[in-house]
């Protein structure tokens, strides 16, 4: 049995058992995170399988370049985080602080780019559900009739007012059934029904991911403060390791989101 250091809780018999418990706990927690996102991925899969034309049409309104930029930013942040964990293991406090700082800066950059993207969607009315109200002169958008024949400002198939969802069947039938052709070329000419479903899923997925980035930033800040106070060293760096794992997961989820939302077809 090893000596009881100040970082060893009384119910563990040695630091190795404690470290391994923490690590197993974190992996299990990551599994729950994956299943939390799993619900959204399932919703994505169901709607994409049933209404591919919505996805083919709507994804053109997302900015691929900004999405790719953000992917690079997050991959870099994963690298700086991994570097930080290594520095913690080696007990190099100064490098640890630098790498955590860099990770934070990259996370802020990610959220900044995301904010720019959200703002442009907002400006052009490319939002979810009842709030989907596209402005006519969207860049790269077909000049006429994003929502079909009627005036784009007040589309008939989007019921308004309090009773909106009480109208059981959409007047145009279930999403996409009216436009089953769905070829890429055609999508450019005419918008399918219920394009807002795509934006609903887009905002839910990226929003939940963004929330995780924010939580991750909070955790990194906490680790930063603790390493500033000199809490970590070669014999105790569990929190750095666990926050690192969490950050890699946040990164990994984005790596799935990017092609699924931005790179359709």
């Amino acid at each position: 049995m090893s000596e009881h250091s100040k970082n060893l809780a009384h119910h563990f018999s040695n630091t190795e058992q404690q470290f391994e418990s923490g690590k197993l706990g974190m992996w299990l927690f990551l599994a729950t995170e994956i299943l939390l996102f799993g619900g959204l991925f399932a919703a994505y899969a169901v709607y994409r399988a049933n209404h591919p034309e919505i996805f083919a049409y709507a994804h053109q309104y997302l900015d691929r370049n900004l999405g790719a930029l953000n992917t690079v930013v997050l991959i870099c942040s994963s690298f700086t985080m991994a570097w930080g964990v290594r520095m913690a293991q080696l007990g190099k406090q100064k490098q640890l602080l630098w790498s955590l700082m860099l990770t934070l800066v990259l996370a802020i950059a990610f959220l900044g780019v995301k904010g720019v993207e959200y703002e442009s969607k907002w400006k052009h009315g490319l939002l979810w559900g009842k709030n989907y109200n596209p402005v006519e002169h969207v860049e790269a958008a077909p000049a006429h009739g994003i929502v079909g024949e009627a005036a784009p400002v007040d589309p008939p198939e989007v019921p308004t007012g309090e009773n909106a969802s009480l109208i059981a069947p959409a007047q145009t039938g279930p999403a996409g059934l009216a436009h089953t052709s769905g070829e890429a070329a055609k999508a450019h000419e005419e918008a399918p029904d219920n394009v807002h479903i795509f934006f609903g899923i887009y905002f839910l997925m990226t929003g939940l991911h963004g929330l995780h980035v924010l939580i991750g930033m909070g955790l990194i800040l906490w680790i930063f403060a603790r390493s500033y106070w000199g809490h970590f060293g070669p014999d105790y760096y569990t929190p750095v390791d666990l926050v690192g794992l969490y950050w890699h997961l946040v990164d990994l989820i984005w790596i799935f989101l990017f092609p699924l939302l931005y790179l359709i077809r």
Binding site: K130, P159, I167, N194, G200
Partner: peptide, 16 residues
């Protein structure tokens, strides 16, 4: 927010 995923009036699916 009226996201519409479960709302048949908005092309969503309540059975989902």
């Amino acid at each position: 927010m009226g996201i519409g995923i479960f709302d048949p009036g908005l092309g969503g699916d309540p059975v989902l």
